[in-house]
Computed example of a mutant assay.
Amino acid sequence: MLIGVPKEIKIREGRVGLTPQAVAILIEKGHKVFVEANAGVLSGFGDADYEKAGALIVPKEIAWGADIVVKVKEPLVSEYDFMQYGQIVYTFFHFPDNPELKKVVREKGVLAMPYENIEVAVGNKILRPILAAMSRVAAEIAVDVGAHYLRNPNGGSGILLQDAISVVIGYRGIAGDRAFGRLHLRTHNYGGLVIGFDRDEKVVMGLDLAGWLKQADLVICCAAKRNTAAPKIITRGMVKTMRPGSVIIDIAIDEGGCCETSIKKTTHEDPIFVEEGVIHYCVANMPGAVPRSSTPALVQASLPFLLEIASKGWGRVLEENPVLKNAAQF
């Protein structure tokens, strides 16, 4: 099959859908790969790297004309016209928080394979491997961002993470577990405290969520639900009781966020807003800030499924692979 890799156009999105190494594997399997010029530059891959792997460097419209288009983030409005009937688009879509895109994809007859819908059984758990890879990166960033915005010059209340009270919502998930672990390392042997709430947990160490939020300096929201919008766990009323200059980082903002005051998605260029006296960081593509780390992690998780789709085609792969059948849209 012909596989196209457009350059991402979301603000400050540095990731790319395929690495040169992945391109070489696809070409070895008999596929052709078109990569838009400069698509991988921010991830550390020049056009020459892709050409050496066997790809052709092409303009945007040619990359979008392939049988399978491999991206990172959801197609933006300016990309809608590039999508074609019967074309497979393999990327994050986040349909629950983007009904307009869902409508466009359906009307155009695009064959969508959302990264976030791919679920595999690992023991007695269900894992979303591609989403998980990016969730781990987002959690690493969230801890760094929290430390940054808690400083006085950045609008924060003026406290180090090692001394702060941090609350992680959804701490049993992939992102929540990573954030909780990193925060624990920062507070261990110091005066800080890390509190973890599962999505349905009511009381931790004698206090409910509202009680802990009154004391919290940093809140990292990681709770999500499969194939639906993120649950609204933190109410506006809870946020009103928080200390001025405290920080909320809503990793779940791609799915609408799990805080009622996460009222908009932000960008790496304009990452925060203040609501009820609390700093909110709601960047929808957090891993895009560290593309040299996040692109290889993304492609390592996504490539095995792409290889199967490309070798079998849409109809056969859905017949033979229930994981991809359940993930596919339209």
Rank of each mutant, 00 (worst) to 15 (best):
A310D: 07
R182S: 07
V299D: 07
R243L: 01
K32Q: 15
A53I: 10
L2C: 07
I130Q: 01
I263Y: 11
V33I: 11
T187R: 00
P59V: 10
S166W: 00
A224E: 10
F34S: 11
A112W: 01
A22I: 07
A284R: 00
A310M: 06
R243K: 15
I118M: 04
W64H: 12
V168Q: 03
M238L: 07
T19L: 12
A297Y: 05
S302Y: 05
L131Y: 02
G156D: 06
K102P: 02
T228P: 00
H184R: 10
E201A: 10
Y90W: 09
L42P: 02
L306G: 13
L101F: 09
F273P: 00
R128F: 12
I159F: 02
V168E: 01
F273Y: 15
P99W: 02
Y190T: 12
I220Q: 01
V122K: 09
G245H: 03
I130L: 13
I263H: 08
G109W: 10
H94Q: 09
D254K: 05
V122A: 10
V204I: 15
A138T: 07
G158V: 13
Q21P: 02
G211F: 00
P231I: 11
A289D: 13
V239L: 08
A24W: 02
A53S: 09
Y115C: 01
S135P: 01
G245P: 02
P322A: 08
D81N: 14
G155R: 06
P231V: 13
G170E: 03
A138M: 06
A216C: 05
G109D: 09
V5R: 04
A132G: 13
L56M: 10
P96T: 06
G44F: 13
F330G: 15
L127S: 05
K264M: 10
R243E: 00
D208N: 15
P59N: 11
H148P: 01
G313F: 14
K232D: 08
T241A: 14
